[in-house]
Design a protein around this nucleic acid. Sequence first.
DNA 1: ATGAAAGCGCTAACAT
DNA 2: ATGTTAGCGCTTTCAT
Lengths: 335, 335
Amino acid sequence: MPPEQRPTPHITSADVARAAGVSRTTVSFVLNRTPSARISETTRAKVLAAAEQLGYVPHAAARSLRAGRSDLVVLPASVSAMGRLFSDWVDELETALGSRGYTVVLHGDRSTDPVTAARAWAQLRPAAVMAMGGARLTPEAVQVLAQAGTKAVVTVSAEPVEGVFTLIGDQADIGIAATEHLIARGRSRIGVVMPMERGLSAFAEPRLAGARRVAADRRAEITPLPMRYSDEAAAALAVLCRELGLDAVFGYNDEYAALLSAALADCGVAVPEQIAVVGADDLLLARVVRPRLTSVRYHLPGADLMAEAVDRLITGGSPAPLPRIRFEVLPRQSS
Amino acid sequence: MPPEQRPTPHITSADVARAAGVSRTTVSFVLNRTPSARISETTRAKVLAAAEQLGYVPHAAARSLRAGRSDLVVLPASVSAMGRLFSDWVDELETALGSRGYTVVLHGDRSTDPVTAARAWAQLRPAAVMAMGGARLTPEAVQVLAQAGTKAVVTVSAEPVEGVFTLIGDQADIGIAATEHLIARGRSRIGVVMPMERGLSAFAEPRLAGARRVAADRRAEITPLPMRYSDEAAAALAVLCRELGLDAVFGYNDEYAALLSAALADCGVAVPEQIAVVGADDLLLARVVRPRLTSVRYHLPGADLMAEAVDRLITGGSPAPLPRIRFEVLPRQSS
DNA sequence: ATGAAAGCGCTAACAT
DNA sequence: ATGTTAGCGCTTTCAT
């Protein structure tokens, strides 16, 4: 049977109503399972059949415009800057929120100004904005979202942010964990890689600060090591490490650490015997390179717990505060 | 100065009009730079000032509902399944489309049924859907999108898909490139890793088929090697490779290849002297491991070219066909 | 150069 | 149990 050629290209709920011989109200009630309306089984079946037969797909924009609420959850995040650990979590979060009826979309976050970014998200009038990555949430940005009716604004930060459901997690803790591990392994002349790529210093600085804090108490010495992400830069830095007489390096993350570790080996420095190396983020990479890379991993709250909290925020409840993000050293061969 | 507390939480274009002392029509003209309307400089300035002062943010849903067109580009893609090469491209595409006035959102693609997935995208009434990853586009799914008014449907496939702007790219070419490279290096007993993780066989099968096609002509022998992504599986497979007397392995992609390469070294097999290894996707990983991994990389059409084509499709033009996706072997130490 | 008015597709009081 | 009706915020003829 050839596909029926509709004169109207767009099928609306009115078409469904007409086909089923009911009003648009009834169609709306059936399709939304409105609890307050009692619909007879026969009517419900008729409506469903008509919708199916016509290939009706509701118009999300019209729906949320009228209803005054949206089921959209915007997750600002640049997809290429996402580690595996985080992207797995995002996938789970998407599933968890999806099963609660929300539509999750990732919104590339390449705008430089927080307010401009917030305006871009606000245009979509989302129920929630979860700025878990690099996006900065200034008070003005938060106000833009609030004014657009965003019910839940979530972020992760070292300290609570006014008007925002804050997941507490301090990058400094990563530097602390790595440095404590290295000192426990008997190291005391510790380099800390500072990536020179843009946007990374927001993470690198607190990690360095954490390392310094630990070292100050334990008579260890911290040397910041600026490094670009390239073979050449790593090779040069490897030589420098040897000349400085370092006995350990915290490599910012697994990628920088692995690159440097390979460069150290290439120039004859034994890892970990002469210089121990620690990464962070527990990427796949850490388990594939030799020596296997010691890494600091983080534990985000379960995606389901997070989804529950967001749902509570959207529906007007006050969620229980989530546990602080914890960091853990996974000792492997490189330290 | 404390933030002004508005009685109305949502600021609409009517508020802007009132504050500027003009009609909503004028506000719309100014904000959209409607070319057909001539607005005096003073009026334009007044409107802009009022909008800024009130913190007005347009309501994308209302706008596209009324205008009958949307500036949304939906990119269905599971973020955790994305390689670095592809995610970089997505970032660029986002920028390129953004500068043309489109709003790009990634929509997690975890639904099993193509039509269900298409319906989820169609709810957003996007101007374009770019299914570049694993998402299958059946004729029914394409029809759902067409009926929802999606102007541009784009995908990548080995052959043109009816009603879809198809980027031609054949996974088999990867297997072909890798195998030709290995044969040129004098290898003839070639294993091909077949990942057992779900969803990957859609890519793995054609790669294997490509390898077989080349081998048939050149008296080389292909052995499929099922493998799970784990240290243990890799170790076991490394032993098997030795026992089978293979002299080369195409590792499906860089991750599997690197894992296997490390396992081979661990069990005393010299790479590449005894067994050459080739990966694919040219991940960072390939340059960080030792020996550095030979990899097959692909060249997607430039993001700007792609954006241009999508824009053409949306605005009713017919874009020039894009160049076929090309694959290239990057020889490094492992082969 | 600017305004009045209609209506996009949908939901939710309020009727019946 | 189902229908009538009034908008949600915006764009766009058509007047003026």
